[in-house]
């Protein structure tokens, strides 16, 4: 069986600025100009006040691992060659901004809950560059 291609995210029109920024190495989220709520993932309207007056803001790219798992078997077929790989929920420093990603740049066994991480960017294809995270080096 041919190995399926890596799934590329479905991109809705209002989400395009997110992926354009990621291609340029910036992690962005939305902020409501009416009520100040931080919004991630990108929405059509504010999740708090329904305003559609939203601005794009650059994230610090720094956060912590809320939870993680090392995928060792029975993964979706497009990811077989990546195993073992780490899936994690990362909470960014910016209030209310959290996302699923992969932890890269370390031995999977070293990942822990609440570990500090920072964003890195990995090109998936010509259109999509995925934000991923690596441990922040201990000083």
């Amino acid at each position: 069986m041919d190995k399926p291609k890596k799934p590329s995210p479905v991109v809705n029109p209002w989400v395009k600025p997110f992926w354009e920024a990621a291609r340029e190495g910036r992690l962005v989220y939305q902020r409501c100009r009416s009520c100040g709520t931080n919004i991630f993932y990108p929405r059509i309207a504010c999740i708090s006040c329904f305003s559609d007056d939203l601005e794009w803001v650059q994230s610090s790219g720094k956060g912590t691992v809320y939870s993680y798992t090392v995928v060792e078997s029975n993964c979706p077929s497009a990811f077989v060659d990546d195993m073992p790989y780490v899936i994690a929920i990362v909470k960014l420093q910016e209030k209310g901004v959290q996302m699923l990603s992969n932890i890269v740049g370390c031995d999977p066994v070293d990942v822990r809950c609440d570990m500090p991480v920072e964003v890195v960017f990995e090109k998936l294809n010509d259109d999509i560059t995925l934000p991923k995270f690596r441990p922040v080096a201990l000083k």
């Binding site: 890596k6 799934p7 590329s8 995210p9 479905v10 991109v11 809705n12 989400v15 993932y41 798992t69 995928v71 029975n74 993964c75 979706p76 497009a78 990811f79 990546d82 790989y85 899936i87 996302m99 699923l100 990603s101 992969n102 998936l124 999509i128 995925l130």
Partner: peptide, 12 residues
Amino acid sequence: EWEVPYGQHYSA
């Protein structure tokens, strides 16, 4: 949009 591209699935 936000999870399938990272290899997310039910066991994970």
